[in-house]
Nucleic acid binder design. Structure first.
Lengths: 219, 219
DNA sequence: GTTAAAACATGATGATCATCATGTTTGCAA
DNA sequence: TTGCAAACATGATGATCATCATGTTTTAAC
């Protein structure tokens, strides 16, 4: 590289980040290369100095976004519990700012039709499953009897992913703020209530199970 | 209309159906008007004799698809239970054939960015909620004590929607058939296990609740 | 039958897209 | 210092898109 390597790498990074932000905001098919390059403060020219094709950019930028989210979750995994995690994931802020949100609820539909993006996405899901599973089995170590504790943790991790993604997908697509909020808060309650269920059924307090009250959605 | 009204109406219907099928198969932004017209065995010309704009077609065709699904569900609502419904919704067949599948998992992401499509989609969700809620409260009429039975049924309906959509979205986007199947079957187990929970906890048989086995995914 | 307007087909239009072509700037290696 | 290749900018290219323009077919109404 004859241009300063540092700045070139920084621009490369900027393209990746702007691309993943725009993809999440407007859909993969809804963003053009000139637009991405402009957002990265460049002209459309040097795009092919940085990437092989648009397909390559899509795969790389999504991978980048997912890696970043995964790392953020892992970093705070020890410091806070599932409740705080759900507070954030099911918050209105997360819902209203897809640009730097989790890739899954916004783009899963398009990723399903994009062969190049499916593999990194699958890895993302699997790694997240492991992360959740680990923190869950650590959490319920003393509670679960033993035996299929691992299988239960995996089931719980999948249940969480499914609930989180489904809730945000629906909450975003719905045109009624009250219903949108309701989806988020009820799912929050529901996912939290179910935690630790399984072999030792009925983990949460009866008071909580009985209560129809919904928690506030603030992150 | 100087062309035979019957045939014109049939063509109109064909455009709507082909459009909604293609939208679900390849995404709203992934299908062009000429393509849709060709699928409906017409040239691109008379499109604007049938619709005001592409936006109008999107809204109308999605509404059509959702109405049809909703009617199908209502028709069979009495004849079969929640289990059969989930058997089908969480089946591999439903997962692998988005062309005539439920609109929510495929298009919710795009609908969230399409103001014209949000309103009919919201109605779809609400109507489905009512349908599920009604069948649920009928189901648990004798079991639930009373009081917030209605609220519980609504919570349950939202829980079902969230789980169904999240599961199909993830199962479609994942590149690993084993994981995809696992997401579907675990969600099936989970959604069914939870049914009737709430005031009268533990609806399903203990044997089922305890069992870690997953049901086959066949519809 | 004649007419007329809706529904058709063919074929612009201008915009936008991904990609490529070509010239220019840059600063590290020689 | 000089050269040179990578990274820039500007500007084609051909394809495709939504929409419109124009002429043709059709049949219901008169």
């Amino acid at each position: 590289m004859r241009y300063p390597a540092k700045e070139t790498a920084a621009r490369h990074e900027r393209i990746l980040q702007e691309a993943s932000r725009l993809f999440r905001e407007r859909g993969i098919g809804g963003v053009s290369l000139p637009e991405i390059m402009k957002a990265a403060q460049l002209t459309h020219g040097p795009f092919y100095n940085h990437f092989e094709s648009k397909e390559a950019l899509i795969a790389e930028s999504l991978k980048c976004a997912m890696d970043s989210k995964l790392e953020a979750w892992r970093t705070r995994a020890g410091k806070s519990g599932l409740r705080e995690f759900l507070d954030e994931y099911l918050s209105r802020e997360h819902c209203d700012n897809p640009g730097d949100a989790c890739v899954a609820p916004v783009l899963a539909g398009e990723i399903a039709r994009n062969p190049g993006a499916k593999r990194p996405f699958t890895k993302y899901i699997k790694d997240s499953l492991f992360a959740i599973k680990d923190s869950l089995s650590a959490m319920s170590e003393q509670l679960a009897p033993e035996g299929d504790r691992k299988d239960e943790a995996r089931a719980e991790a999948i249940r969480l992913w499914v609930g989180m993604v489904g809730a945000v997908v629906l909450a975003r697509a719905v045109d009624d703020k009250a219903l949108s909020d309701e989806i988020l808060t009820r799912t929050h309650t529901d996912l939290l209530r179910g935690t630790g269920r399984g072999p030792s059924s009925g983990q949460t307090s009866p008071a909580k199970r009985r209560s129809g009250k919904r928690r506030p959605i603030a992150a």
